[in-house]
Computed example of a mutant assay.
Amino acid sequence: MTETPVFAGPVDRETYGEYGPGRIDTSNGWNRPRYPFQGRVTADGSSGFRAEPGRYHLYLAWVCPWAQRTAIVRALKGLQDVVTLSYVDDERDGRGWAFRERRGPDPVNGFAFLQEAYEATEPGFPGHLSVPVLWDRVTGSIVSNHFPDITLDLGTAFDAWGDPDVRLYPEELRAEIDELNAYVYDNVNNGPYQVAAAATQADHDLWRERMVLALERLDTRLAERRYLLGDAVTEADVRLWPTLVRFDLLYNPMSGVSERPLTDYPHLWPYARDLYRIPAFRDSTDFSTFRVPRPGFVNDDVKRLDIAPRAADWAAPHGRGHL
């Protein structure tokens, strides 16, 4: 990195517009953007990217739930000295994520904008400028911006340097974890965006019902088990939790999902607090970033529930130690 920190100028939506047009397709409700860089890191290097200390860097955003998962896994596995990490600014304009003084500079390349990392990997890259980004210092390019793969690789490929006793994706549970992750992604993680951006009232109502039903099913699942797969935290818990922690302050007010707050679920709410007591979950959370302006993709042509943001006591005892 250059000796003098490089920072982007202030957010300027008047000049550059809102982020999204030309990068994200919202022409028919919510279409999840493409994440084309899908390299994998493996312990033996057979993928072309060998797990090595000091080689990889994560570009994340505090506001992004997909990026938070990556920070959680990195901390759970004890990889803080193995894979470095930095954060982009909380706000963006049409130029995408940027590095500003509030969250610090890019310590690896001295970029002012995350777009520079994408351009270094694929000149003229036209797609979504997303986080998390896994950067390779050796090739000077992005390994992956495909968020589901990044956490799996951090959780499995770095056991030589991380904590091998933390088994977030154990082989004997992978089929069950994959099935549950797919269900949670379709109905919970992606649910608030589908509800918010639904093009028709019928679609809006359908997505609302799907997400409410999924939360009820997950609540029932957690009645007799401490975590989603039993008595240990797995990748499935990491995938679900960032949506839960944002639900009452951000997602429900944004989308109008349900009159029932997270705090009204007898098992999901204590479960969420149980995870919050773990430093990896707690320290990667900045509640102030959940109070953001109404996103531009929210469709105001549908009738939706008017839900006010709701703060809660996340430090309250969870009472799940007996499970």
Results as ranks from 00 to 15, higher is better:
A214F: 09
F111D: 13
V138S: 11
V82M: 11
G162E: 08
D203Q: 10
L129C: 05
N299H: 13
Q201Y: 04
R92Q: 11
A308H: 12
T15W: 13
L76H: 12
L275Q: 07
A311M: 15
R304D: 09
D165S: 15
T15I: 13
L268Q: 04
G78P: 04
P270W: 03
G127C: 09
S258L: 10
F99K: 01
T151V: 11
T200I: 09
F7D: 03
G54W: 11
E176T: 07
T121G: 05
R95D: 04
A312P: 03
P105F: 00
S288D: 15
P105R: 01
L215E: 01
V184N: 04
G78V: 06
W62C: 02
T139G: 13
H57D: 14
R260G: 08
W207D: 00
F125D: 02
T15G: 10
P309H: 10
E122P: 07
H57P: 02
S27L: 01
C64K: 01
A223V: 08
T4M: 11
A197C: 15
G155S: 02
R239A: 04
P261I: 04
V133P: 00
G155L: 02
R13A: 14
G319N: 06
A112V: 00
V166F: 05
Q115K: 07
I72L: 03
Y271W: 12
G45V: 08
R34T: 15
R174A: 15
A157V: 00
V238G: 00
L275V: 07
R226K: 14
P107V: 11
A196F: 03
R100D: 04
D153C: 12
V184H: 01
W30L: 14
L134F: 11
Y87W: 13
L85K: 12
G54I: 09
M211I: 03
V298F: 01
H267W: 07
R137C: 02
Q115I: 10
E209W: 02
R40C: 10
G162H: 05
H267S: 15
P253T: 06
M254S: 02
A198W: 09
L79E: 05
A43Q: 10
V108W: 14
L168Q: 12
V41G: 03
P164R: 07
E3N: 10
G9P: 14
L168H: 01
V131A: 00
Y35R: 05
R310H: 13
V41C: 04
T234N: 04
H128E: 12
Q115P: 01
D89R: 03
R225M: 06
T42E: 10
V292C: 08
A182L: 15
G94P: 02
L240D: 06
A280N: 10
L228G: 08
T4R: 09
A61K: 02
L79V: 06
L206N: 11
V184Q: 11
L249N: 12
A196C: 07
Y183N: 15
F247Q: 08
